[in-house]
Every structure is written in C-alpha cells, then in structure tokens.
Design a protein around this nucleic acid. Sequence first.
RNA 1: GCGCCUUUAACUCAGCUGGAUAGAGUAACUGCCUUCUAAGCAGUAAGCCAUUGGUUCGAGUCCAAUAAGGCGCACCA
Length: 588
Amino acid sequence: MSDLIKKASEQLNEIIMNALGCLVANEAVPSVPLPAFNIEIPADKSHGDFATNAAMVCARSFKMSPRKIAELICNEVFLDGSLFYKYEIAGPGFINFFLGKKWFSDVVTNVLDESDKYGRTNLGNGKSALVEFVSANPTGPMHIGNARGGAIGDCLASVLEWAGYRTEREFYVNDAGNQIEKFGKSLSLRYMQICSEAGTEICKSYSDNESVCHAIYGEDGNSDAFPMPEDAYRGVDIIEHAKNYFDIHGNSLQNISEEQRRKVLVDYALPKNIDGLERDLKKYRIVYDTWFRESKLHANGETMRIVSKLKETGHTYELDGAIWFKATDFGVDKDFVLVRANGIPTYVVPDIAYHYDKLVTRGFDKAINVLGADHHGYVPRLKAALTALGVDADKLDVVLMQMVRLVRNGEVVKLSKRSGKAITLVTLLDEIPIDAARFFFNMREANSQFEFDLDLAVEKSSQNPVYYVQYAHARICSMISNLKSENLLPTEKADLSLLDSERETELIRHLAALPTEINQAAKFYDPAKITKYSVELATLFHRFYDSCSVKNAENAELRAARYELCLSVKQVLENVSRILKIDCPDKM
RNA sequence: GCGCCUUUAACUCAGCUGGAUAGAGUAACUGCCUUCUAAGCAGUAAGCCAUUGGUUCGAGUCCAAUAAGGCGCACCA
C-alpha cells in the first residue's frame, strides 16, 4: 500500500512549506496569505524528478520576481535526511528537485515486498461501489457496443477494487416491460410463419436449422413470404428460438390465444437468452456478482411505490390522463411522463426504483453506470427523480461511451441493428483474441469515439500493443530461465543502488507511478490509463533490455541488481494484466 | 430550434485539471541480430493544438463566440 511518489511529493511539500514559513518569520517576504502552489513531475527529466512553481505563484503577492523568490526559498531548503539530494532554480522560476539513490532502490524493494498487491491504494477507503455495465437487452444477442461496455466496465470495476473500493459488478436484466412484449410478439409471428404452409415448405427443403432460419430471414428479415412489421425484432435469433420450440413441441401453440402463445414462447426463449448472455460474457472473462432483474421490482411492488413516493413529494401532476414528473423543478429542460394514460409506467420508473434500490435499499456509497452516449439525456432525468426522493444523486456517476466504429481493410464496417446483421460480441470474439478485445476497448477513454481496427487486433506482430506488452513479460521469463540454466541466478540480496543508468532509473520511476496511475484511473473512471501505463512500461523495459544486459552485466553485483529490477517489472506487468484480465504468457 | 460530446502530425490518439522546447503508436525513410526472444532497439521526417477574442507572470489546457462532425430532445427503451 505504499506509494513512493506520493511519499516524496508530500515530503517535498513539507520542505517548501517550512522554507516559506521561515521566510515569513524572518520578514524576508511580506506577511500575506500564501497562494497555493503545485508540486509536479516535469515531463523533461533534466528538470528533475519533482518541480514546484511556488516561487512563481507568489510573485504577485510578494511583489518580487519569481527567480528572486526562488532564491530566497532555496536559502531555507534543507535536504539532509530527505529523499532528495539536489535542487536547482530553473526557467522562469521553477525549483527542481532530484531524488536520491535510496528512493530508487526503495521502489524496487517495495514492488518485490508487496508483490501481487503492489499498486493497491486506499483512495476508496473501503467505501462500496456498484458498477453496472453492459445490461444488454435480453431479447437478443449483444452487439459491439456491449463489447466495449463490457471491457470498460469490467476493468473499471477492477481499477476501483485496486483503489480500495469494495466493488461489485452488476448486470441489470430488462426482463419486463415493452421490449419483452415486443419480444413475445416477434416470437409469436415467427412461430406462426414456421407453422404456415410456406414455412413448412422451407423446413422440408433444408436439412439443417441454420439454413431454414436464414431462408426465412431472407435479405433483411422482412421478405415477401415472411414479412415482419416495423415494430418487431427481425433478427435470425428470433427465428431460431421459434424453430427450436417448434422442433420440440410442434405446432401445439398454433390454435391457442395470441396472448398465451406469446407467454409460452417468452418463457421458453428468455431464460435461454439470459443464460446466453451470462455464458458469452463469461467467455469474455466477465463474471457478475449480481444479475438484478427488473421483474423483481414489479413483483415486489417497488415500481408503483416509487410513483406514490414521487406523488407525495409534490413534484408530479396529471395531464391528458398521464402522470408527469416535474423535472423542470430540478433544472431539467422538460418534464416527463411516469405513468402513461393506459396505466402502464414508462421505463424510467423501474429505472428510478432500481437506482433507489442500489443507493438506499442496498446502501452503496457509489453507483457507477457505464452507458452508451445515446443515453446522456436520460441521466439528468434519473438524477432529478432521485433527488426528489431525497437520495443524494451525486452518488450516481455515469460513464458515457461513444460509439464504436469497426474498421476492416481500412474501411468502416457498416452496422445495422435493424437488419440483424450487426456484428455481435460472439462473432467479434470468434474473430479476434479475447486479450486483444479487452485491451483494445480499453485503449481509449470511454468518452471518445473509438475506431476498432479488426486487422490490427488479430495481428500477431509488433504493431499490436497487446503483444508488445505481453512480449515484455515473455522476455523477462525467458531471461530468467536462461540465467537459471546457466547457474547465474543471484543468491544474495542485491545492492539496488547500483541501478543508476538512465535506462534503469526511468524504468524505476515508472514502476513507482503505478499507485498514482491507479488512483487517477479510479478518480476519472478511466481504465484506459492502465493500458497506457502498461504500454509505457513495456516500452521502458524493452529499452532497458536493449542497453543493459543482465546475463552479461559488468559484474555479479550489477547482474543481481538488474535481475531484481526485472523481477519487479515482471511483477508489475502481472499486476496490470490482472486488472485488465489479460494473459501474461511466459513464452511467445 | 435547444442540450451534451468531439476537433492536437498523413492516420489513430495521449497531454497528469494552467507550466519549461506540445508527445506516443501506426504509415514513410535510415541504421542495429556469431552476445539474455528482432513480436525488439536507436535515429530522420512530419504541427497555425479547428477559428477569433478574453482571463494572467504563463493557455493545447479555463471563459465567450463562430465553424465542422457525432449523439440526444416520445405516453420507445
């Protein structure tokens, strides 16, 4: 749980505060409120390991030049016994500080001591966080957007775990409401088509079910022989369900009421779909703590209870027979309908009930939803309703994802939901390795449009960042086994202060940055920081590898030190891979 | 029409909430394997940070306006 960057930065802060305090006490500077200053890590290493702008921010209040103030501060800076060995005044008035050797050896020791826990922080302080992601409609297969949401949500949950939150993963199953009605309607239509004369003909002319289903599907799921209305699901999966039911039970549903037929078919197909979601996501290495069903909210009366509660708050009214929520009272641009004139609540009500359940009933400190950007307008509405219910809506955070564009052969792959020919999660994973999918979807910040290069993801070469990172790990493993077979494995604790070349120190600095990086990723809900970190770590390792031989080090002491450095890099690569849930192969 | 997001190298994107000479990866070009994995490394070239104003010691970063693109604005989910 130690973060040596934080430790150094805090120590430096204290040193500077003390120096400023002395200046004020000695009346070397005017006694005015001190402006806030920063301690930052310069991009350019020749500017030190840390730098402060203290002298510059004080320029105005002290009515002195930044460089003059910097000199005064430096007169009161004492580095004896600190982690730093040197400071200098540079540029417009920065004071740069350089870390001593001990800090660098401490980093390596620290990684090896904390091993598979290195990188964990207590930013979350044990607070509970519920990450809801994917929550795909159970009426059909998952699409490419769900694939992105899955990778981001799952890694975000890992990141939060590592940042000290008690984290749970949840899938919200929309197993009730309008889309289930639509599902039933579509199944029933397809079933009746299969039972029809034309359907029987098709069934006879093909031996396998797949061909039958595709024949009925036709070009766009709406052929002349088997038409489907605009408001029905046309996908092949619907036909498959109907056909499978037909194969088992024949045309027994043909002559019962439409309502009954729909119910039977939904009861048959829905559990299969939900199991399918679970199975496919598991293949994608996503395992949920909870599958929360919308139907539960209806069954226990929670949905209608929410309506009554909102009525009690006085923020509802009736218009044209419907019950409206006065969202405008909470700064939302438009009011919205809670209960339609036909008495059926709109989708928002169970959603409100669901989030009420998360934050109040189950009492999570944070609820985080990973949603497609097309839902952004809905977020303020949900928050408004929660606020009306007395819930602290700031506990709900939404990560919006922009759309994914698939690119193959340099061209955008057109996606059409309606035709049912969209690329599904399953077909994507058939095409590209799981590691690549998980890694690629986490390479970009959620809120940026994302181009997924299918050719690159299957590429087993240097161009593929996943392999680049994994290759670093494999190289270390191979190096270790080489040392072992040549009896060169160091037996004693190394003197890590020997690691002082630029290649070595830049690598160590990056090892030290993991806790900071995890905190940043958790704070901004941005797991892409972790993939970037891992690529950077691999880069620095490859550079080190190229110029600092372990086996052929100048002497045994240096070999031992480098060996330990490699072990720590290996450890960090493994920890990062665990967060991303990608493999760390020993050989490639 | 209103709201949200985006705009940085030829392409895909970073830029640590305002710091020093704006960075990676691809693609292009040049080098480096009798020595721990060349799935690697080093180097060259590539920029009006969309435009215009403002805020201050200092702006890719903050504010305003404009332009282009994406997405929302249902008694659909």
